[in-house]
Simulated assay, not measured.
Amino acid sequence: MPDPYLQRPEEARHFCLEVSNVDSYRSALKEAGYQIIEAEPIPHRPRFFTIDPAGNHLELTTILDDYQQA
Protein backbone atom coordinates (compact mmCIF):
# COMPACT_ATOMS: atom_id res chain seq x y z
CA MET A 1 0.00 0.00 0.00
CA PRO A 2 1.48 3.41 -0.95
CA ASP A 3 2.38 5.86 1.78
CA PRO A 4 -0.52 8.38 1.87
CA TYR A 5 1.82 11.14 3.07
CA LEU A 6 4.12 11.02 0.04
CA GLN A 7 3.22 13.09 -2.99
CA ARG A 8 3.51 11.64 -6.42
CA PRO A 9 6.37 13.28 -8.38
CA GLU A 10 3.94 14.95 -10.78
CA GLU A 11 2.19 16.83 -7.96
CA ALA A 12 3.24 20.43 -7.51
CA ARG A 13 1.63 21.19 -4.14
CA HIS A 14 4.10 22.79 -1.76
CA PHE A 15 4.62 25.78 0.44
CA CYS A 16 7.43 28.29 0.25
CA LEU A 17 9.55 29.73 3.04
CA GLU A 18 11.42 32.97 2.57
CA VAL A 19 14.77 32.74 4.34
CA SER A 20 17.56 35.26 4.80
CA ASN A 21 20.26 33.16 3.10
CA VAL A 22 19.03 30.33 0.89
CA ASP A 23 22.57 29.01 0.33
CA SER A 24 23.14 28.42 4.05
CA TYR A 25 19.85 26.51 4.28
CA ARG A 26 20.77 24.46 1.20
CA SER A 27 24.11 23.53 2.80
CA ALA A 28 22.62 22.70 6.20
CA LEU A 29 19.85 20.54 4.74
CA LYS A 30 22.25 18.74 2.41
CA GLU A 31 24.63 18.08 5.31
CA ALA A 32 21.70 16.71 7.34
CA GLY A 33 20.94 14.24 4.55
CA TYR A 34 17.88 15.88 3.01
CA GLN A 35 17.36 15.69 -0.74
CA ILE A 36 17.98 18.98 -2.54
CA ILE A 37 15.92 19.49 -5.68
CA GLU A 38 17.07 22.41 -7.80
CA ALA A 39 14.24 24.55 -9.16
CA GLU A 40 13.71 26.40 -12.40
CA PRO A 41 15.40 29.78 -11.87
CA ILE A 42 13.37 32.91 -11.19
CA PRO A 43 15.23 36.24 -11.54
CA HIS A 44 16.32 37.62 -8.14
CA ARG A 45 14.88 34.56 -6.35
CA PRO A 46 17.49 31.87 -5.73
CA ARG A 47 15.54 28.82 -4.60
CA PHE A 48 15.40 25.05 -4.20
CA PHE A 49 13.01 22.37 -3.01
CA THR A 50 13.35 19.63 -0.43
CA ILE A 51 11.04 17.03 1.06
CA ASP A 52 10.40 16.89 4.79
CA PRO A 53 10.08 13.61 6.76
CA ALA A 54 6.29 13.61 6.26
CA GLY A 55 6.66 13.85 2.48
CA ASN A 56 5.78 17.54 2.14
CA HIS A 57 7.51 19.41 -0.65
CA LEU A 58 9.09 22.63 0.64
CA GLU A 59 10.46 25.50 -1.39
CA LEU A 60 13.05 27.76 0.19
CA THR A 61 13.95 31.10 -1.38
CA THR A 62 15.65 34.40 -0.68
CA ILE A 63 14.09 37.51 -2.20
CA LEU A 64 16.89 39.67 -3.54
CA ASP A 65 14.89 42.08 -5.71
CA ASP A 66 11.71 42.36 -7.74
CA TYR A 67 11.70 39.53 -10.27
CA GLN A 68 9.48 41.57 -12.59
CA GLN A 69 12.24 44.15 -12.99
CA ALA A 70 14.69 41.60 -14.44
Rank of each mutant, 00 (worst) to 15 (best):
P2S: 10
P2V: 13
D3Q: 13
D3Y: 11
D3G: 08
Y5H: 08
L6P: 03
Q7R: 14
Q7I: 12
P9F: 14
P9L: 15
E10R: 13
A12V: 12
A12D: 15
A12W: 04
A12G: 15
A12N: 11
R13V: 15
H14V: 12
H14L: 10
F15A: 07
F15V: 11
F15N: 12
C16F: 03
L17R: 08
L17N: 00
L17A: 03
E18K: 12
E18N: 12
E18T: 15
N21R: 04
N21V: 00
S24I: 10
Y25N: 13
Y25S: 11
R26L: 01
S27K: 13
S27R: 11
L29M: 09
E31I: 02
E31F: 14
E31N: 10
E31T: 14
A32T: 03
A32W: 03
Q35F: 00
Q35T: 01
I36E: 07
I36C: 06
I36N: 02
E38W: 00
E38A: 08
A39V: 00
E40N: 02
P41Q: 01
I42D: 02
P43H: 10
P43R: 13
H44K: 09
R45G: 08
R47T: 09
R47M: 08
F49V: 06
I51L: 12
D52W: 11
A54S: 04
G55E: 01
N56E: 05
N56I: 09
H57P: 10
L58F: 05
E59C: 14
E59G: 14
L60F: 15
L60R: 04
T61F: 11
T61G: 00
T61E: 11
I63D: 14
L64W: 05
D65I: 05
D65Q: 04
D65E: 07
D66A: 06
D66V: 01
D66Q: 10
D66T: 12
Y67D: 09
Y67R: 08
Y67W: 09
Q68H: 13
Q68S: 12
Q69E: 08
Q69K: 12
